[in-house]
Simulated assay, not measured.
Amino acid sequence: MAPTRRAVSTSVLAVALVMPLASGTAQASPAANHPRLAHSTLMTSRVLPLPGTVNARDIGGYRTYDGKTTRWGVLYRSETLSKLPPEGVHALADLGLRSVIDLRTGPEMQADGADRLPAGVTLIAQPVDDTSLFAFIGMVVRSKDPVYQQQQLGGEKAAVRMEALYRAFVTNPANRAALGAAVRTVANSHEPSMFHCSSGKDRTGILADTILRAVGVPASTSEGDYLLSNELRAASDAALKSQLKAAGFMQDPTLLDPLLQVRSSYLGAFRAQAVADYGSFGAFLTEGLGLDTLTLFKLRLRIVG
């Protein structure tokens, strides 16, 4: 029996609230190329063929200032793992993971569901505040009011909200504590680890940026890893916007683009706030995130080969 209009609308709204589009297999093309990546062949090995995700990848293979390279198969980043089908759980098990760091907030986990993890993998909840972005998006989409949606998201309003979100990753003490704890978990791990938020792009992106730069990866290279989310999420984001329009939730779903995308200006807001508050990136690591020299040394040994 074909689903009713009401059933379809409810499903689409659930997708809108959670942000990542539930999918059975990764949608990204391994042949996709990013201008900041030195070799297009990296895309084949970097993007994980993890069913139920579109933005799961390895952060290995990045060159550091001293000519060394981040290790493959040690640390992974992803979006939510709550949509994994059984074959996705099996693929996750093949990575040999022992811990998964979940950066989602409580309301996100309640709406999106718990991670589906293989037996023996420890889930570590380190929620990072999204400044009510999750609730805000749901409110705006549910309104179905194009005038209200334009008022809330039009012009530069959505982008300004995103930059405020990124600054709050630094200014919010609880966020700094959670990010610092996540870095310590990675540094002290002896088995492969993964970290994620809902879409795998914002909180996951700044944690990846922090770790990569902390172990000596140039800021421009780390930014390339951050921006890669736009390519990997492009197909699922386009499908989400199409569904929202077809179901009558938004006349102009492109208003969501600043919220769905990552942008250099967002990452720049995070980096600038860290320097403004602590004087340098190094001081942000030690004073802001509470990472001591031994932890940073262990992180480098863990991540760089």
Results as ranks from 00 to 15, higher is better:
Leu95Arg: 04
Leu95Thr: 08
Arg98Tyr: 10
Ser99Cys: 11
Asp102Gln: 04
Leu103Tyr: 00
Leu103His: 02
Leu103Ile: 05
Thr105Arg: 04
Glu108Lys: 08
Met109Gly: 12
Gln110Ser: 15
Asp115Thr: 01
Asp115Ile: 00
Leu117Val: 09
Leu117Gln: 05
Leu117Ile: 10
Ala119Asp: 14
Ala119Glu: 12
Gly120Glu: 02
Val121Thr: 02
Thr122Trp: 07
Leu123Gln: 11
Ala125Met: 09
Pro127Tyr: 13
Asp129Ile: 04
Asp129Leu: 00
Ser132Met: 11
Phe136Arg: 09
Phe136Asn: 08
Val140Ala: 09
Arg142His: 12
Arg142Asn: 15
Ser143Tyr: 02
Ser143Val: 13
Ser143Phe: 03
Ser143Cys: 12
Lys144Asp: 03
Lys144Asn: 12
Asp145Gln: 12
Lys157Val: 01
Ala159Cys: 08
Arg161Leu: 14
Glu163Pro: 01
Glu163His: 04
Tyr166Lys: 02
Tyr166Val: 03
Tyr166Ile: 06
Thr171Ile: 09
Thr171Trp: 05
Asn175Val: 01
Gly180Arg: 03
Thr185Phe: 07
Asn188Leu: 10
Asn188Lys: 10
Ser189Glu: 09
Glu191Asp: 15
Phe195His: 09
Phe195Pro: 03
Ser199Val: 14
Lys201Tyr: 07
Arg203Gln: 01
Arg203Tyr: 02
Arg203Ser: 02
Thr204Trp: 06
Gly205Tyr: 05
Ala208Ile: 05
Asp209Ile: 08
Ile211Asp: 01
Ile211Thr: 00
Ile211Pro: 00
